[in-house]
Design a protein around this nucleic acid. Structure first.
Lengths: 326, 326
DNA sequence: CTGAAAGCGCTTACAG
DNA sequence: CTGAAAGCGCTTACAG
């Protein structure tokens, strides 16, 4: 490891001057700046972290999401990063892959970087409390707050589930199937399903037990034949848009048209959904604003000791073309 | 800011003992460990970085990509993160938004975190050299190496452009339009276009000047009417899959069917393309492997002083249903 | 098991 | 414009 002292020696100046030359703060002659920079380059000097709480590395925050390749989380991650850039914080990432064990490891790794704070989207905020040995200020994103994690930014997934189901029932649908990702890995899917159940029951209809699909990234091999035979649904709600796209593909492989034979709707409002033909009917969640809100809340807590809050953001039904009246 | 000294004071021990209690290294009585940990918790103590090059934060690397929400980059970022987790390195992210000015800022920010190394996907590796005041070990991802950045992991974009064009010509297409993202922001698009030009010319066909589309995230407002009138293309090559999806939507809005009236093909092989109906014809780039390869190369350079290398990975034509013979 | 003290690599008044 | 020196918060032999 090369030290500044060695650089100074090679440049023929003192430690102090070398420090000033490299950091461009104190007054140093141009000649000396050049000498020092050259010496530093030749020696491959990389500054170590000075003590004293001064300067050193930029503060960082840690972000845990299930998967970077899911557009929903990519979108919030992107806006978190933009917000943190302005605030002068670095952003470290970790992925759980929807696996509680990996989730705990991932958070532990983030902690090794001594982050100013954490933004977490966890599998289950209650059980994730096991992590808690003195976490820095933490904001949940997309998970409901708990007593241990009182700061959170969420959408009303329960209400969104009700709204979508209500719309389908209004359009005359009665046999509505709910296809979901793994509930254990997503309390969002759970809340959406709850909204569906409630609304079905409220209309005197019997909710169908959710069909749970293990997460596989992109659902290009989904097989719905058994469920179609068993329930003959006229509409299918998918617990997220990625899954909805997979459902549409699966229906087409069964020779069914969307929305001709079966209506399909999802949640999230991923951008790609607008490019499909017909465009996907979905409940749009403002992922980017949610990410930015979580980032701002975290900064407020970490820098101004602001109290933990729960922000709930509004969603919006986006009528595409994959749903029709019966 | 709370210091270890204050914690020690409150716990009723010396600085040294407090340090040992918190780090669980030297021998400390259980009672004292408890006292110190409690004092630390009460004071909200967060360790500062000790000098001396010892311990401190986990080493980190920095990753710069144009945009996290682009599935291509999300995919490589994800695999970089997975590779680095195993190696015990944190991953910091930065986005350029395809803007050279923001790119420079973003790299400067990353440097503030004193990363062990950098993985960069830049707009233009030649002009980006302006960044170079003593960068740590750096690997380009998706950019061709230069003398200043000799380490790189790339696909053969030029060859991919040739291959796709060749296929369309084989299928009888003659008027082939190339629709591209902003060339200034992507040398990948440039190389793909070059492959197209060469192949067209090689077959005695006149390449059409590329239609450049400014980047807008998701292309749901693309207007191709002028180009369609001017060139009556029977096939359109898009410089990437996201754009290809936009092109297909635009054609449909013009009342044209794909591939009935116009064939469309893209590059990248994003997962969503497989879910479309018909599935997108594209040249698949192994983004995840490329990310992992870049990560491994960087670690090798940073930890073992391995020499810079250029790895070129193989692509693969994925025949979807958006192209047909004429 | 505990503490006094040296030392880590760096920054920054202070003096020239 | 430059240097000697104090000091940053922490770790770690060394001595008890």
């Amino acid at each position: 490891m090369t030290t500044l002292q060695q650089v100074a020696l090679r440049a023929g100046c003192s430690l102090a001057t070398a420090s000033r030359a490299l950091n461009r703060n104190g007054a140093v002659s141009d000649l000396m700046v050049r000498k020092v920079r050259r010496a530093a380059a030749e020696l491959g000097y990389r500054p170590a972290v000075p003590a004293g709480g001064k300067l050193g590395r930029r503060p960082v925050i840690g972000v845990l999401i299930p998967s970077i390749t899911n557009p929903v989380f990519a979108s919030s991650l992107s806006s978190i990063q933009n917000r943190m850039l302005v605030a002068g914080h670095g952003v470290l990432i970790a992925q759980s892959d929807y696996d509680p064990a990996r989730e705990a490891d991932a958070v532990a790794s983030l902690l090794n970087d001594q982050p100013t704070g954490l933004i977490l989207t966890v599998c289950n905020p209650a059980s994730s409390a096991a992590l808690l040995p003195s976490l820095p200020p933490t904001v949940l994103l997309n998970n409901m707050p708990t007593s241990l994690f009182p700061a959170a930014v969420t959408a009303d997934n329960h209400g969104a589930g009700r709204e979508l189901t209500e719309m389908l029932i209004d359009l005359g649908h009665r046999r509505i199937l709910f296809v979901s990702g793994n509930f254990a890995a997503s309390d969002r899917a759970q809340h959406r399903y709850e909204g569906y159940r409630e609304t079905m029951a409220g209309h005197g209809l019997s909710p169908i037990r959710a069909m749970e699909i293990p997460f596989v990234g992109v659902y290009d091999q989904l097989d719905l034949s058994a469920a179609l035979t068993a329930f003959s649904p006229t509409a299918i709600i998918a617990s997220n848009d990625l899954l909805a796209l997979g459902v549409i593909g699966a229906l087409r492989r069964e020779g069914l048209s969307v929305p001709g034979d079966v209506s399909v709707a999802g949640f999230d409002g991923i951008a790609i959904g607008r490019l499909m033909d017909p465009p996907l009917t979905t409940i749009e969640m403002p992922d980017a604003s949610m990410g930015a809100a979580a980032a701002s809340l975290l900064l407020d807590m970490a820098e101004n000791a602001a109290p933990a809050r729960h922000l709930s953001v509004a969603h919006m039904l986006r009528r595409g073309g994959t749903v029709r009246a019966i």
